[in-house]
Design a protein around this nucleic acid. Sequence first.
RNA 1: UGGGUUAUGGUGUAACGGUAGCACUACAGAUUUUGAUUCUGUCUGUCUUGGUUCGAAUCCAGGUAACCCAACCA
Length: 553
Amino acid sequence: MSEEKSLHFLEEIIEDDLKAGKYQSILTRFPPEPNGYLHIGHAKSICLNFGLGIKYGGKTNLRFDDTNPVTEETEYVESIKDDIRWLGFEWANEFYASDYFSNLYEYALVLIKKGLAYVDDLTSEEIAHLKGTPTEPGKDSPYRNRSVEENLTLFTAMKEGKYKDGEKVLRAKINMAHVNMLMRDPIIYRIKHAHHHRTGDAWCIYPMYDFAHGQSDSIEHITHSICTLEFVPHRELYDWCIENLEIFPSHQYEFARLNMTYTVMSKRKLLQLVNENFVSGWDDPRMPTLSGFRRKGYTPGSIRNFCDKIGVAKRENMIDISLLEFCLREELNASALRVMAVLEPVKLIIDNYEAGKTEIMISENGPDESMGTREVPFSKELWIEKEDFMEVPVKKWFRLAPGAMVRLKSAYIVKCESFDKDAAGHITAIHCTYLPESRSGADTSGIHVKGTIHWVSAAHAVNAEVRLYDRLFKSENPAAEEGDFKEHINPDSLHIITDAKLEPSLTTATPDHRYQFLRKGYFCVDKDSTADKPVFNRTVTLKDTWVKEAKRY
RNA sequence: UGGGUUAUGGUGUAACGGUAGCACUACAGAUUUUGAUUCUGUCUGUCUUGGUUCGAAUCCAGGUAACCCAACCA
């Protein structure tokens, strides 16, 4: 208990600030743009911002950065709030950048009056052309030296809708030769005659990100404004605005965003997958969205734990998705209810077992005794997995094969006597005899078998659809591959089994429980599930050292 | 070719001038009525070249590499 976890750089900054008395308490914020669903990369930011608030006794605001009405929708606002709550965090205040449109407009006026902003009539192409390149300085716009009065008149007219989209913009007057491209008279207001999801048609001019984000932070008195690395060059402009507006000095700090193997993490790409029907929607279980992970059966705790384990730093990273799966299995192993389900069924007939007889077997619900036990019916005809029988066994095979014995989990030891094949050579039934004295919990047979397999009584089985998901991409880093990232989609990312056989206890399965289908993986009830047709999603497989071993033969 | 940011095992992340540690992965073994879990063990690392120092992953100088910046997106 004595070992102390070292602090990451943001925690160090905060502790220094607190110690120096710079702030009495901290205030962070999570600032999504409502133009898409949240993904696992956002989870890192959410856990960081809210986690810091909790750790240092501060607060965290949720603020929607909704300054671009053409891409933003209320549907996204709702999904984002659902996802944050699901992850387990509560925001101190729900704010919107659009709440501050009036303040922001006043700030623009302040800049104009100080001679630090001007209205430009150039087209977007002309502005881009005069901007220069990273190696060549830009050139001044011919409209750069308009008088304060003229700028005031023009900007007011912009606000009043006297101009069409793109006809004029308001620019900060900084330095067209600045080495930082963002400081070369950045556009801070543009005209968009578009309906805003919250302000409706009240405005036809909207502030750009750089003229909204820092000021919004300042208005809320955010102490530590944490964002990702690509915003590093924006910090200079962020500080410039705050300084020249003479408002509360929030400070921006940047960390490296999360990248994960076998997936993509940009909203633009995820939107493509949805729009072009590569997946069924934002919450398709193959998506790296929080709603996708939720539907697939991931727990919020496992994601929080993952975000804690990956750390926070400033270097580019590519996290192995197996770490996320490790966190998931760690939690599910301790909490999931154990049940038996046969995914690829083949009939097993116990020749020396009385026809029509049913025995009730007692099986434990989990590794922890406190999870209790349940009753599982057993009879002469059972379903077992096709893959648990080998006509010609390989080395180290300790499942069923002609003449071989296995334990039927929580029931008897059986010995394979023969099997039936159809004309096509498929095995249609496996005949066994059982050892009556080997009953689970009362075994006097003295026989120890190496293999134990799961089963479901055919007469009592419940049919179900089971959806098996695999990674969406074949490539570790599809975004970095040549060509379109969609060329690297895994064609076998979804395998649907329509006639899985479940033990009858699963008829009462609920969406809020996680189940371990013994030896097969963790599963949950899908939202498509009905009483007539149960549907289960595979959350993740169990680790399987046998598949690797089997490949050697 | 300008500016900014970053370099520690296969992947993440610590070590704040004093034994390069932890986790994941991989591999080997033990236990196991889940080939799961659990337990034990093994492999692999300070970008490079100099310098300062009794001592450098850490400080200094020069290289090299990766990522970001020329949207009326955020």
